[in-house]
Every structure is written in structure tokens, then in C-alpha cells.
């Protein structure tokens, strides 16, 4: 089976986020980069599916040229090929991103059986790229999946709800967006990382589209860092803890 898995390069933010002077981006001068836990699970799932059913995993990203680093990380996890949709340094919105990915799929000689996405990107959280790609390609789609099985051209996909799961059956080819918890992503071996450095990455240059949603500026929210009331420094604080619970009427 042929699987295309989409990822997005994002900064590894620490305990505190700081912004660039124009307030339009995170200041990444001292930050490393990664891709989100949802997408790590998407890559892991695609590698596992191909291990089970045979086939190929192509990992795709739209972003700056430096995003090849994240493609190579995915290749080290077991993906076969990488595609970079070179979007330059400007951030792309969900309309242009989805359109570029759908066009890359349409223009490819590979007939993909499954397109996997993260449920939402770690940074912009637009919650829509997978669905837009599916709509543009005329494929069925389900989002937010935490359990996936494929057999006989049909995917059984489960989405968590309070106290259980919703079950969807979806004929391939299809688009599925996933959440962390789907699997436990592997740590690639040093050897796999070395080999991934040499893997070839296909580059394409898509055209951006008008977005409709235009960034004005970012803001780091004020957090209430007023000191906590210290109830105690030993198990004797249990009395005060129970006082608090009684006051809140939760016991």
C-alpha cells in the first residue's frame, strides 16, 4: 500500500515563548525544531502499516528548505521517500497548504491508498488541512483518530469520546487525521539517522493562494504567576488540603 504522510516543521518551544520584534513570529534564534506528537504518530502508523501490508511511505512537508531536517527524521523512523513543498520562510495558511498538498498528490504518479495528517498542527492549530485536501481530491475523510486498522481496502478508525470511542469504517483511498496516543513512535537508531541524511528529497515549488485569514500580530498571554498559598511542607498539610476540598464542596 502507498501512504503519504504530511508533517510540519515547528519550533521546540520551552517554558517561555518570546516573539520577534514585529510580533509576527516566535523568536527561534535559540530554539531547535521538531514536528508535533500527532504527526510523529502519523509517521509511525504509516511505517507500521507498510511493515504489515508492504508498500511505501512518502513523507511530505510544506515549509522552508530547512524542513528537510524533519523529512529526514521521518525517513530515519522508516519512511521511504520525502517531498519538500518549498514554501519559503513565510508561514502558509491552511487554504494554500491544503491546495498545494492536493495538487502534489494529483501530480504524482503514485496512487496513494492513504493520506495521513496530524489532527491539527502544534503551532497554528487550524484544524482543517486534512479535510480540505480530502474535499479537493474527492476522498472520504475522518479526523482525530486514535486507533487505526486496515484490512481488505477498508480502514477501521476510532475516535475517543468521554467514556469510549466512536468507530468509523472508511473505504480506501482516504484521508485520515490522527492524534497522539495512536501508537508509540519509535526512536530511530543512529544507523538509520546516518542513512536518512543521504536519502534524496524531491523538491517542488507550489504557488501560494489568498487565505482570507490574515495574521495581524501575536501576543504572549499574561499568566497569573502570583505565588501559590503554601499549605505545608510535610504530610501534615493534609488537614489544610481537606479544608480546601471541603470549602470547594467537592468531597
Amino acid at each position: 500500500m502507498e501512504i503519504l504522510t504530511a508533517i510540519k516543521r515547528v519550533p521546540e518551544t520551552g517554558a517561555k515563548v518570546s516573539l520577534t520584534d514585529d510580533k509576527r513570529d516566535i523568536d527561534t534564534t535559540s530554539l531547535g525544531f521538531t514536528f508535533s506528537p500527532h504527526e510523529e504518530c502519523a509517521v509511525e502508523e504509516s511505517v507500521q502499516l507498510v511493515e504489515e501490508h508492504g508498500g511505501n511511505v512518502t513523507v511530505l512537508t510544506l515549509g522552508p528548505e530547512d524542513a528537510t531536517e524533519q523529512l529526514r527524521s521521518s525517513i530515519a523512523m522508516g519512511a521511504d521517500d520525502g517531498i519538500l513543498l518549498d514554501g519559503g520562510d513565510e508561514e502558509w495558511g491552511p487554504v494554500g497548504t491544503a491546495s498545494a498538498i492536493a495538487e502534489a498528490v494529483e501530480g504524482s504518479d503514485t496512487g496513494y491508498d492513504l493520506l495521513l495528517f496530524g489532527n491539527e498542527s502544534a503551532d497554528a492549530a487550524n484544524h482543517q488541512v486534512g479535510v480540505r485536501v480530502a474535499e479537493q481530491l474527492g476522498l472520504p475523510c475522518v479526523t482525530g483518530i486514535k486507533d487505526l486498522e486496515v484490512a481488505d481496502g477498508t480502514a477501521t478508525a476510532k475516535r475517543e469520546i468521554p467514556g469510549g470511542s466512536e468507530v468509523y469504517e472508511i473505504d480506501l483511498p482516504a484521508v485520515i487525521t490522527v492524534k497522539e496516543g495512536l501508537n508509540e513512535p519509535r526512536y530511530p537508531s543512529m544507523r538509520a539517522k546516518m542513512q536518512a541524511r543521504k536519502a534524496s528529497v524531491d523538491q517542488q515549488s507550489p504557488e501560494p493562494r489568498a487565505e482570507g485569514l490574515e495574521l495581524v500580530e501575536l501576543e504572549v498571554p499574561e499568566t497569573d504567576d502570583s505565588p501559590a498559598e503554601i499549605l505545608g511542607e510535610s504530610s501534615e498539610a493534609a488537614e489544610d488540603v481537606v479544608d480546601v476540598l471541603e470549602e470547594l464542596e467537592v468531597v
Partner: peptide, 14 residues
């Protein structure tokens, strides 16, 4: 909200 609310975005929707 971006980043789960760690960052706030002001933007214009047309």
C-alpha cells in the same frame, strides 16, 4: 489561540 493557548493570535478574517 495557537499552541494550545500558549500564544494568542490577532488576525483579520475577510
Amino acid at each position: 489561540q495557537r499552541w494550545g493557548g500558549t500564544l494568542i493570535e490577532h488576525s483579520k478574517l475577510t
